[in-house]
Write a protein that binds this DNA or RNA. Sequence first.
DNA 1: CGCTGTCTTGAAAGGACTCAACGCCGGTGG
DNA 2: CCACCGGCGTTGAGTCCTTTCAAGACAGCG
Lengths: 241, 241
Amino acid sequence: MSQPLIRRLERHGPLTVQEKEVIQEITSRTTVFGPREEIVAQGSRPNYSSLIVEGLAARNNYSLDGRRQITAFHVPGDFADLHSFLLQPIDDGVAALTSCTVAMVAHSDLKEITKSYPYLTRALWHCTLIDAAVHRAWLTALGRMEALERLAHFFCELRDRLDTIGMVQDNSFDLPITQEDLGDAFGISTVHVNRVLQELRAEGLITSRNRTLIINDWERLQSVGQYNPEYLHVHQPLERD
Amino acid sequence: MSQPLIRRLERHGPLTVQEKEVIQEITSRTTVFGPREEIVAQGSRPNYSSLIVEGLAARNNYSLDGRRQITAFHVPGDFADLHSFLLQPIDDGVAALTSCTVAMVAHSDLKEITKSYPYLTRALWHCTLIDAAVHRAWLTALGRMEALERLAHFFCELRDRLDTIGMVQDNSFDLPITQEDLGDAFGISTVHVNRVLQELRAEGLITSRNRTLIINDWERLQSVGQYNPEYLHVHQPLERD
DNA sequence: CGCTGTCTTGAAAGGACTCAACGCCGGTGG
DNA sequence: CCACCGGCGTTGAGTCCTTTCAAGACAGCG
């Protein structure tokens, strides 16, 4: 299997043979985590960053009184905590939603990259910037959109992110996220998630059963969610020189 | 006046003379913007990043139907859109809240830094990671906290950020942010901001008059806002080698 | 002195929450 | 092979936080 990080970085421009070798090398150590298992603990100081090779993961931020906020979902090819390279301790823990294969990339290797591979450095930096751009899209959703719009927006986002890695067929994809998770991500109660999902179904926008989401009306779902995929910068070229 | 960016970066570790010279050089071109003036337009593709040298600025993200979400506030020493170096077009515009002195740092200069100054590169990357960490703290506030807690949390955050640049005296500081701005940042209506502020005042936590905020009970304000300053990474050391 | 942006207040309406109970389904173990 | 169990989804009713609309007060500025 080709390294998902290489594919991910090459979305923005080709890598040299040498760069690809470096990536291959630093991502060779992998571990498998079971569903609901914690990959990185909030408040810990790992000396590696976790790259999702396979599976779906979430970043959890528990507030002082124990409420959970999911700050990100991660698909294969995403670094779940690349920021822990420079930011310690880690302020949000990573947990597997499904069974996950994770590559542990040593921070020392990342540091070497910043010394010898300027383009790779910018590409990795770029990854963390997209992460932040998604945070901002979520901020707008949480701050200024209603529950129905938030979920519609998220389903659009997830569709596009999964599509770039070939995990969408006919606007349908696996959705191993519980209603409780959705609530914790988008600031609504589990009960209300349930009702909003019913509304999306009743509106003919989606079908969901057995952990599978089918988007029945892609145009209208985007419109309801006020979705504009630009913030994902999926194929934005990254200048090499 | 010593360059605020140098002071900012040196919070995490000393710079070499040469590094300081580089920073001094790339931040030499400055412009002044009046209150409410737009510094960078949403959707534009600037070839420089804006460093706030003096004044207070906000990042605005307008959704498709025109609602505004403020995604960040920036104090002197902050890059308002360092991410535009690698992420184009810019997804959130920058606007001055007060009169602002802004240094325009050419992206070409930043790219040169990534080629020749690994430590500076990591330090700048680090700046964008803290930016994202603040986003996550806001996500938790917007998703899982009530209006009262959100504002309490923000006042704690702002106090600490202003304190590191010497703009707080006796737990009081200038607050040139209107109630409408606060609402747009924390997902509440202007009317409700007003009522929540009254409650914070009635509880004896703050006093606010004439664009000045006085924190009367710092301990309790932090407790109400469930505030833990760790995510700001104010004095986290950044390894040089 | 009047204008305009900002702050304040009141009342009614609505979106979302909490609590509590029930249904569904796949997995486990006897 | 079936009963039990736990996780997840669904439903109903009452409550509460927050919004909207509308109007008035205040303050700085030209």
